[in-house]
Computed example of a mutant assay.
Amino acid sequence: MTPDEKYLDLLKSDLQRSGRNDQDEYLQELIEAAKEEIKGYGVKYTDSSDYTSVLVSYASFLFRSRAEMNYDRTMPRHLDRRIKQMIWKQVRDDE
């Protein structure tokens, strides 16, 4: 299983859409958007469960914010905190 397939499966589970394939292309685009956006915050790609969790949570946030018409896209505090913690961990590990 490729990382992208894993991300898609986890996102579908998070959104309670397992077994459905009708929105796979859209969900894959959200994953790609989430990758770019968290990269813009300073998160580097790693093959870790932390990265996977943050990426899937962010993609889920993008999906839900659109569904709820939350166009200002105010990020939930728990997700903001996880992104900041991940950045700090990556900076610390690079030293």
Rank of each mutant, 00 (worst) to 15 (best):
K35G: 02
L15R: 01
V91A: 13
R20K: 06
L30K: 00
D94I: 03
T46F: 03
R20C: 04
G42N: 06
S18F: 07
Y41L: 06
Y58G: 02
Y45N: 02
F61C: 04
D4C: 03
L11H: 03
E25M: 03
D94S: 15
E32T: 12
K44W: 07
E68C: 03
N21H: 11
K89S: 11
L55I: 05
L79Y: 12
K35W: 06
I31W: 02
F63W: 12
R81L: 12
D93A: 14
Y51K: 02
R92S: 11
D47K: 04
A59L: 07
Q16F: 11
K12L: 05
R20I: 07
M86G: 07
T52H: 05
R17Q: 11
S57G: 01
D4Y: 10
L30W: 01
F63R: 01
D22T: 09
S18G: 01
S49F: 06
Y71K: 01
D80P: 00
D72A: 13
Q90S: 09
R81T: 13
R17S: 07
P76F: 13
E29W: 01
L11C: 01
R77I: 13
T2K: 02
T2E: 14
Q23S: 12
R73K: 11
K44H: 08
P76A: 13
T74D: 15
R64W: 11
F61Q: 03
S13N: 05
T46Q: 10
S13R: 12
L10R: 07
Y71P: 00
I31S: 03
I87K: 13
E32R: 00
F63A: 08
V54A: 07
I31M: 04
E36A: 13
D47R: 04
A33P: 00
D50G: 05
G42R: 10
S13D: 09
Y7Q: 04
S48W: 04
L10P: 00
F61K: 00
L11Q: 04
R82V: 05
Q23H: 06
I83R: 08
L79Q: 10
Q28T: 15
D93P: 01
A59W: 09
V56W: 07
S49E: 15
R77T: 10
E95L: 14
A34K: 00
R82M: 12
Q28L: 12
P76C: 07
D94C: 06
R20L: 11
L10H: 04
Y26L: 06
K39V: 01
N70H: 12
V56F: 08
A59M: 08
I38S: 03
S49D: 14
K35Y: 09
S57M: 06
D24V: 08
A67E: 15
S65A: 15
E29M: 07
N21C: 05
I83C: 11
L15E: 10
Y71G: 03
E37C: 02
S49Q: 08
N21Y: 10
D47I: 03
N70W: 12
D72Y: 15
N70D: 15
S53K: 01
A59N: 05
D24I: 05
L10C: 00
V91Y: 11
L8H: 05
D47V: 08
S65V: 13
R20N: 11
A67L: 11
T46H: 03
D24Q: 06
